[in-house]
Write a protein that binds this DNA or RNA. Structure first.
Lengths: 188, 188
DNA sequence: TTGGTTGCCTGACCTTTGTGAAGAATTAAA
DNA sequence: TTTAATTCTTCACAAAGGTCAGGCAACCAA
């Protein structure tokens, strides 16, 4: 749980009672590669923190598996379009590499917002930061070529490329596996 | 100011003192077509509400004017990647159609968060909702053809297409004006 | 009225990426 | 160790979209 509290502290300091309250609504999950942490059609009521391993959000578009995002160690993962709207998600969370996950009960968390303004503030900041990343990602998708995006990923998070199957990387970049192969061949 | 308070109320009810406090950090701006409300390089410390007219966020990529988003009546517009990080923005806000804008002083707003938890909660919800829209937009950009995206825009916000120059629509859709013209010719 | 500017459309050609199929290479299973 | 299943790469061809250039209509300003 230490990692999670350190992660929180980078956004917002919490009084000890608030830390304790959060800790009490968390549970540890150990889960193996290729298993789904949450499945398609399920309404998201949990926010996950990846302590070890890698997770990804994916969904099916015309029968093809599309990766929306990766979450390596020390990151938060949640299907926000379901969490914030209360509607079922068309997306699933899958474990890409054997993982230890901390699950935060979002229903209880939102109740804590009333008791601990610092917790509401903490998660406001966490999701503001995620929002900014998403806005930047749009720019990257829309106005950089597939090769530029691959190189950027290589530079920003080289360990993801080494630890995740190429087909997931390809769909994350918005291209086919074939195109990614060509790009890789070109670079060398 | 009535429109703004009604907009707020859709997300979160505010006590009268909180409404009054927000009203006091707002100012009205009347501004003409083609003028920049905020310019490139400026750090964003203002959140805008469009009361009348249309605004857009744009930036230059390789010398070409790219539209990131449109904001018609009764929407909020802000360059969040600057507002939430405190760094200068590479983007500008331009008025596309003569407008009346309510400017909310974000520095003072963030101070109000300490006095009025309901205000912090209100803006948390506003930006959570914007975040969800942005996540959905990625899906739209990445996995729909230019024609599908144009048709979706036609369906969702037909009035934007009628009120905004086609070159802005094209760059918003991530294509050239030429391609957009061909798509339009194809549809008829 | 004329000339300049802007916004939108069209044609010819080129580049990037997708599709379908098939072949290495790696890994897992028997 | 051999077979089977994945994973990744490569090829030939097709489609989507980009680039460059030109054209026409509408709208100003002189």
């Amino acid at each position: 749980m230490k990692e999670l509290l350190m992660y929180f502290n980078r956004f917002q300091a919490l009084p000890p009672e608030a830390e304790k309250a959060i800790t009490e609504i968390c549970s540890m999950i150990t889960i193996k590669r290729n298993e789904d942490l949450q499945s398609i059609g399920h309404t998201c009521l949990t926010i996950y923190f990846v302590k070890k391993g890698i997770a990804r959000i994916y969904y099916y578009k015309d029968g093809i598996d599309i990766t929306e995002s990766f979450s390596p160690e020390n990151t938060i993962i949640a299907r926000v379009e379901s969490l914030f709207t209360g509607t079922p998600s068309r997306k699933a969370i899958q474990i890409v590499e054997d993982a230890e996950i901390i699950a935060i009960n979002a229903t209880k968390l939102f109740q804590l917002y009333d008791t601990f303004p610092a917790i509401e503030r903490l998660f406001r900041k966490i999701f503001e930061s995620a929002y900014v990343e998403t806005v930047n990602r749009i720019e990257s998708i829309q106005f950089h070529s597939a090769e530029e995006r691959y190189l950027a990923l290589l530079q920003d998070t080289p360990n993801i490329i080494q630890r995740v199957p190429l087909k997931c990387i390809a769909s994350y970049l918005g291209i086919t596996q074939v195109s990614l192969s060509r790009i890789r061949a070109n670079i060398k």
